[in-house]
Design a protein around this nucleic acid. Sequence first.
DNA 1: ACTTATAAGCAGGCTTGCTTGTTTGTATTA
DNA 2: TAATACAAACAAGCAAGCCTGCTTATAAGT
Lengths: 216, 216
Amino acid sequence: MTSSPLPSQDRPARRTQAERSAATQARVLEAAAEVLLESGYSGLTTTRVAQRAGVSRGAQLHQYPTKEALVVAAVDHVARCWGEALRVQAGTLPAGDDRLLRVHELLWSALSGPLFLTALELWVAGRTDPVLREAVLPFERSFVRGARSLMFEMYGPELAARPRCREAIDLVMHTMRGGALALVLRPERPALLDLRLLTDLVVRLLEDEQPAAQSA
Amino acid sequence: MTSSPLPSQDRPARRTQAERSAATQARVLEAAAEVLLESGYSGLTTTRVAQRAGVSRGAQLHQYPTKEALVVAAVDHVARCWGEALRVQAGTLPAGDDRLLRVHELLWSALSGPLFLTALELWVAGRTDPVLREAVLPFERSFVRGARSLMFEMYGPELAARPRCREAIDLVMHTMRGGALALVLRPERPALLDLRLLTDLVVRLLEDEQPAAQSA
DNA sequence: ACTTATAAGCAGGCTTGCTTGTTTGTATTA
DNA sequence: TAATACAAACAAGCAAGCCTGCTTATAAGT
C-alpha cells in the first residue's frame, strides 16, 4: 500500500546535508530576530530561540556552538533583511514630481518598522558587549553608506550635485533615527515626525550655493 | 589618645534611620546607573549592583525587595539627574547674541553625554518589559515637555511666538536624539551632527510667517 | 550496483554556575 | 523594648554549554 517505488510524499523527502543545515539555520535566525523583537536582547536566551524555531537544542548547538556565534549570525541576518527591504522598496519608487517626499517616506518606513527595533536591540547591546560591537559595526557602516548612496541616487543628479547635499542627507537620517527612537515606547501614535516639514527644509538647504553659512 | 569622650571619629557616628536608608539607597541607585552604563540592561543583576555599591545583598533587598523595585527606582533617579543637569546648565547660559546656537549646544551636550546612554538602556528595555515601560513613560513625557518648554524659554519671546516654533523644536530634538544614537557605537568621533547647520535651518524655519508650506 | 564505513545533522538529558528572593540572625536607632 | 537597618547563609530556578546516542546523507570499497 504505502510502498511506492519513489518515497516522495509520505517520507520526509530526501534533502541534501547543505539543505538541511540551511533550513535549520534559517529557522533559528528567524526565531532569534522574533525573540529580539518581542523580548529584547536581555530576553534572548538560546533556549527560547530553539523553542521558537521548533528546533532541538542539539541542532541549535550544532549550528551555532555558542550564544555568541548565534548572535553574530543574527546580526548578519537582520542587517541583510533590512538592507534588502530598503532596496526592494526603492525599486518600486515612481519617478514622480515630489520625489523628495517620496524618498523620505520610503526611508521613514524602513526606519520606523519592526526591523529597526530589532536592529536597535543589537545596536544598543553592542555598546557594552565587545564581541557584538565588532559584529555590528561593519553592518552599521555599510548600512549608513548604502542608505546615503541610495538617497544620492534617488535625489537625482541635479540635487545630488548641490554643495550641501551630503549634509542634508545626514541630517535627514539623523532626524529619522531620532523620530524612530521616539516611537520605541509608543508605537501607537503614527507620526511624530513631520516629513513634509523635513522635506521642505531639505529643499531650502539644497537651494543654497555657498557651502557654509553662519547662523544668525 | 584616641579615646575622646565623644565617639565622633573612630566610631561610625550616630545617624538617624532615615539618613541610613537614604545613604544606602543613594549608593545603590548610583551603582545601578553605573552598571547600566557599563554593562547595559542585560548585564544589570542585583548582585553586581550590590557589589558595586559596596552594600550587602541584605541591605539591598531591604531597601528594594525585588529587582523590579530597584529598576523602577533607578529610572526615577536617572531621570531626575538628567533633568537636573539640563536645568543647571541652562542657568549658566549667557544671554549673548547667538543664543540659538548656544541653546542647541547645551541640549546637545545633555543628549550626547553618559546620562543619555544610561537612559537609553532603560528606554529600550522598557519597550519589551511592561513594568519598566510603565515606569519610563511618565518620565519620558515630562522630560520631553520640560525640554520643550525650556527651549521655548531659551529661544526668547520673539522666536517663541513664531507660528512654527514648536515644530522646529521637535525637529531639533529628534535630530539630536538621532545624532546621539549614531554615537552609541562610536563614542570616539566627536561631531557627526552639524549644530551650525541645524541652527541655520531653524532660523530659516522661524522666519516663515505662514504656518504650513508645501514641498517643491 | 550494492554494501559498508565515515561523517554530518539531530535529539534530549545532564552539569555547572549564576540570579533571584527567602529566611534567620545581629546591630543600630527610636 | 520595639522597630528599623543590615548581614549572610540558603533554596529554587534557569541559562549555557557538554555529552551520549540516534538518524540521515555522502563517500569508499567491492
